[in-house]
């Protein structure tokens, strides 16, 4: 019984963090117009009348930082042109977009961190121990 309730509550009806909710999917199918897809497979929609813009993430958590820079501008109404329409040049020194990895194994750790070997620059608090 308990597990059944849990299942309902963890279903896409109630949770929004694992994937888009039913409501969003329904709204998307009724009013959404697909405008494009980024290189990670996230699909971008806008309302038929053009007022709303949204994204349905491809598999995985609903995490705003998964939106790459070129789509971020469109999604936030900064620009109206779609990345595919704009003649924005991607420079060769630009790195691929990485979402926020905090909390995962790929999270950034400074070189002084213990999991990175703990090699940090010397500080004034350091002392030189005596060795025989």
């Amino acid at each position: 019984m308990f597990s059944f309730i849990m299942k309902i509550f963890s279903s896409p009806i109630f949770t929004w963090w694992n994937s888009a909710t039913f409501g969003t999917k329904l709204f998307t199918s009724r009013k959404g117009v697909k405008v494009g897809e980024d290189n990670q497979g996230n699909i971008y929609y806008k309302e038929k009348n053009g007022h709303r813009r949204w994204v349905i993430y491809k598999n995985g958590p609903v995490e705003a930082s998964r939106v790459p820079a070129e789509w971020h501008g469109w999604l936030h109404y900064t620009v109206d042109e779609l990345p595919s329409e704009s003649n924005q040049v991607i420079k060769d020194w630009e790195k691929d977009h990485i979402p926020n990895m905090t909390g995962s194994d790929a999270a950034y750790l400074p070189s002084g961190s213990l999991s990175m070997g703990g090699k940090r620059a010397t500080s004034t608090s350091d002392y030189e121990p005596w060795t025989p």
């Binding site: 350091d126 002392y127 030189e128 121990p129 005596w130 025989p132």
Partner: peptide, 19 residues
């Protein structure tokens, strides 16, 4: 001088060598 040559752990002489 408080930051150099500090004794920061115990040592015991074993076989003539401090360890």
């Amino acid at each position: 001088g408080l930051k150099k040559r500090r004794l920061d752990r115990p040592y015991v002489r074993k076989g003539g060598k401090l360890t």
